[in-house]
Amino acid sequence: MASKDSGTKAAGTGTRAKSGARAKAAPRVADRVVDAAMRLIPERGWRALTLPEIAEEAGVTLADMRRAVAGKDAILDHFRARIDAQVLEAAEDADLAGETARNRLFDVTMSRFEALEPYRPAIARLREEWGRDPLAALCAARGAVTSMRWMLAAAGIEAGGLKGAALARGLLLIQARVLPVWLSETEEGMPRTLSALDAELARADRIMRGLERACCGGARRGREDAAPEMQEAGA
């Protein structure tokens, strides 16, 4: 006959097993929730869309949805993370070692647009809403900067520290400039998007080179101006 203790242990083991199963199921639920939201956004819009509507479309309970995502903003965060992972996997498979940093960034950015292709209607609606709501756009940009750091990493470009933050914001600006072209793209192979991205990266490259020359020139002038004073001091 089983003892009371063994029954308690069995119950505890069963509870842990259920918790473990739920934890493993959470990513799958999160993906279903993201897919549901992306299907609903073009028609309903993001601001008007409710969590119960998303849960119903995803075919999950609100309780399971809560275990998988923290709220509406977290749904977009999960979506970005999923796209990031796709781009990172594509970068690992591609042979970009011999390419310049600009070419690597070009390939990574185009890979991101390709990954976003199935969600173009939802992204168009989000962009439209954010254009009317600067605060929402700012909140979205904060999450997007994190994604841009991952894109820099995928291109083999250091994304840490203040410089990394500046580069991430610069890349976000580039993508924001190219986004309207991508949204209106109709031809296979996205030739207009390719051209627009190439032009924006070239523009950014010219700006960066100009800043480097200005900084180096200022440093040289500073050293030249300081030289007489240093000589007088016996330096």
Rank of each mutant, 00 (worst) to 15 (best):
M1A: 07
M1D: 09
M1C: 07
A2F: 07
S3I: 06
K4S: 15
K9R: 13
K9P: 01
A10H: 04
A11C: 04
T13W: 15
R16V: 10
R16W: 06
R16C: 02
A21R: 14
R22W: 03
A23E: 15
A23C: 11
K24H: 06
A26I: 07
P27M: 09
P27Q: 06
R28V: 15
R28Q: 15
R28F: 12
V29Y: 03
A30T: 01
R32K: 12
V33K: 01
V33T: 02
V34W: 00
V34C: 03
A36M: 05
A37E: 04
R39N: 05
R39G: 02
G45I: 09
G45K: 08
G45S: 11
W46I: 01
L51P: 01
E56H: 05
A58W: 03
G59L: 03
V60T: 06
T61A: 01
L62H: 07
D64V: 00
R67I: 05
A68S: 11
I75S: 02
L76M: 13
I83R: 00
Q86Y: 08
V87C: 04
V87G: 05
V87M: 04
L88W: 13
E89I: 09
E89H: 08
E89P: 03
A90T: 11
A90G: 12
A91C: 10
A91L: 05
D93K: 13
E99Q: 15
E99Y: 08
R102T: 12
R104H: 01
L105A: 05
F106G: 09
F106T: 03
D107E: 12
D107S: 13
M110S: 02
R112V: 04
F113Y: 14
L116I: 05
E117H: 11
Y119P: 02
Y119F: 12
Y119Q: 03
Y119H: 06
R127Y: 13
E128Y: 07
G131S: 04
R132D: 12
D133V: 04
A136K: 05
A136W: 00
A136H: 02
C139E: 14
C139N: 15
G143N: 07
G143K: 02
V145D: 03
V145E: 05
V145A: 01
T146A: 08
R149F: 06
W150V: 14
M151A: 14
L152K: 05
A154S: 03
A154G: 08
A155Y: 07
G156S: 01
G160V: 10
L162G: 12
L162I: 10
A166D: 11
A166V: 13
A166T: 12
A168D: 05
R169G: 15
G170V: 09
G170W: 11
L172V: 09
I174A: 04
Q175S: 09
A176H: 04
A176N: 07
R177S: 11
V178H: 02
L179N: 09
L179Y: 08
P180S: 09
V181P: 03
V181S: 06
E187Q: 15
E187R: 12
E187D: 11
G189I: 08
P191F: 07
R192P: 11
T193I: 11
A196G: 08
L197G: 01
D198M: 05
A199D: 10
E200R: 13
E200N: 08
E200P: 04
L211S: 09
R213L: 12
R213E: 11
C216E: 14
G218P: 08
R221T: 14
R223T: 11
E224T: 14
M230K: 15
A233C: 02
A233H: 10
A235H: 10
